[in-house]
């Protein structure tokens, strides 16, 4: 398999995953804001912070309101992380790898792009937002499902999986990070429904993890348990541990990946020793920050190993 094609396949999966997680994040945020007591000050702008896009946002908008945040995350083609930019990038990557990904990928990518282009306003305005996001999420899952079920699980598949899992792991740290920040900022006022009670549940929902959590943990939702589940669970496909393991396993099947696999192994061993339940807010934030740096390293090593410039 050509190095360049491998790189594009990897990015196609990353962008597709990014679209799905962004849609999921917006969708769960929408629901969270309805639940919170009015006294809790959590704004849409948090979504910008989660994605480390404060500077880019500030260069385009001065008002940090719902409309601008959604416009920036969904429809702004000058924001390279927006849904509209991601679908364009994803489609370009599929277009340039049509010889290795299943034929239907191209058609589905076109359909999704047309849908997003035509309905993007729905995502920004609140009334039919759910319908829009739901369609986008389902379309992403359709493409991932089609890949999983119909393409050869050869090198191209391993690169798709590397891209998808790394993007997932990174998004998971960001969602958790946002939860932790919100948790720290919200005072526990002793009222019936407080932010502190709602936020951990919200983190689970953002990751589509609520059902899995309840089955695995079998106790009421608490901040420490949620963090542990999201970081360490070995079966939940969006947990950091699962994503790392998956990256390692796919890399094992690729030629010349021995050093990379060893690096993943080291990272996983290191993480296994950390007792996440005991990390309080600030320490957890530092931990998540380190994880994000590790993910950058993982990406760099993947690039150097399989996509060299020659």
């Amino acid at each position: 398999m050509l190095s360049k094609v491998a790189e594009r396949v990897y990015w196609a999966a990353r962008y597709l995953e990014r679209i799905e997680s962004t849609a999921r994040l917006v969708s769960s945020y929408d629901k969270l804001l309805f639940d919170l007591p009015r006294s809790v000050e959590i704004s849409w702008y948090n979504l910008i912070i989660i994605n480390s896009l404060e500077q880019e946002f500030a260069s385009r908008y001065s008002v940090k309101d719902e409309h601008n945040v959604l416009k920036f995350l969904l429809a702004d083609d000058t924001n390279s992380a927006s849904i509209i930019s991601s679908i364009d990038a994803m489609r370009e990557n599929v277009r340039t790898t049509r010889d290795v990904v299943p034929e239907a990928s191209w058609e589905l990518a076109n359909e999704l792009r047309l849908y997003i282009e035509e309905h993007i306003q729905q995502g920004i305005n609140r009334r039919r937002r759910h319908e829009f996001l739901d369609h986008v999420i389902k379309s992403c899952q359709q493409i991932f499902g089609m890949w999983h079920g119909s393409m050869c699980h050869d090198s191209a598949w391993h690169f798709l999986s590397l891209g998808r899992n790394l993007e997932r792991a990174d998004m998971t740290t960001r969602i958790l990070d946002a939860g932790v920040s919100a948790f720290i900022e919200t005072r526990d006022e002793g009222s019936e429904v407080t932010g502190r009670q709602i936020i951990p549940g919200h983190v689970l929902r953002s990751l589509n993890a609520e059902q899995a959590y309840r089955r695995a943990v079998r106790s009421r939702v608490s901040a420490g348990e949620v963090a542990s589940f999201i970081l360490e669970n070995e079966f939940f496909p969006r947990s950091i541990n699962y994503c790392h393991e998956s990256i390692r396993n796919h890399a094992r099947r690729l030629p010349g990946g021995r050093e990379f696999v060893a690096q993943m192994q080291d990272l996983m061993s290191l993480l296994a020793e950390i007792k996440v339940q005991q990390l309080d807010g600030k320490k957890m934030q530092a931990h998540l920050n380190n994880l994000q740096l590790s993910h950058m390293n993982i990406h760099n090593t993947i690039s150097q190993t399989w996509f060299p410039l020659w």
Partner: peptide, 22 residues
């Protein structure tokens, strides 16, 4: 394989090679 010029290289043996992951 769909290749661009930069994916190919001619070695000293005067054969054409493509740059793959392996």
């Amino acid at each position: 394989e769909l290749v661009e010029g930069s994916d190919l290289i001619v070695q000293d043996d005067d054969c054409v090679y493509m740059k793959t992951i392996a």
